[in-house]
């Protein structure tokens, strides 16, 4: 009767995510990476970013997947790999209840990731935030402007090598 077994089978949530991943893998094959079945945030990576909107639409509408809810979209900086990326946390809210995360990466300078703002409207502002903080472009985004920083702010604050600008409109910025 115990729900938790040490060294036993993966938790139910991971098994559900794995099953959902298999459906995506079957359809898109080499465009997606292998499944990372960790307990905290099971995920796969999209290896061909140009296919990301198709995968997203597929995941939202396929009768076995129905990922109807984007819980979060976060930007990530990978300075060692010279890459930027996003992590999308998807959930099938009220239908299957399964969750999975999807990672998409692009190059650090001039990197482009296709938008999924037309798939989940949540992605609209989240992609703007990722652009604001990390500087990757989202091609096809309806309104890609900075969302938090002033529009004429210099640099992208959450990059690991970010240095704050000396002054903004004549006001000293550093302490």
């Amino acid at each position: 009767m115990s729900d938790f077994e040490i060294g036993g089978a993966a938790p139910q949530s991971v098994q559900q995510a794995a099953a959902a991943y298999e459906v995506v893998r079957e359809m898109f094959g080499g465009a997606v990476s292998d499944f990372d079945a960790n307990e905290f945030m099971p995920f796969f990576e999209v290896l061909e970013p140009e296919k990301w909107p198709d995968i997203a639409l597929f995941m939202r509408d396929h009768p076995k997947l129905k990922f109807n809810y984007m819980a979060c979209l976060s930007g990530v900086d990978y300075p060692d790999d010279e890459k930027l990326g996003i992590v999308c946390n998807l959930e099938s809210l009220g239908i299957f209840g399964h969750r999975i995360a999807v990672k998409v990466k692009c190059s650090r300078e001039g990197g482009v990731i296709p938008t999924v703002a037309y798939v989940w409207h949540t992605a609209n502002w989240h992609e703007r935030e990722a652009y604001d903080m990390f500087g990757m472009q989202f091609s096809g985004h309806p309104d890609l402007r900075r969302i938090l920083c002033p529009e004429d702010w210099e640099g992208f604050p959450l990059r690991k090598d970010y240095k704050v600008q000396e002054s903004y409109h004549g006001i000293k910025v550093p302490y």
């Binding site: 938090l148 920083c149 604050p157 970010y162 704050v164 006001i171 000293k172 910025v173 550093p174 302490y175």
Partner: peptide
Amino acid sequence: EHGYHVLKGVDR
């Protein structure tokens, strides 16, 4: 120190 977006004192 790390609040890039914060004015460090309104007396500026």
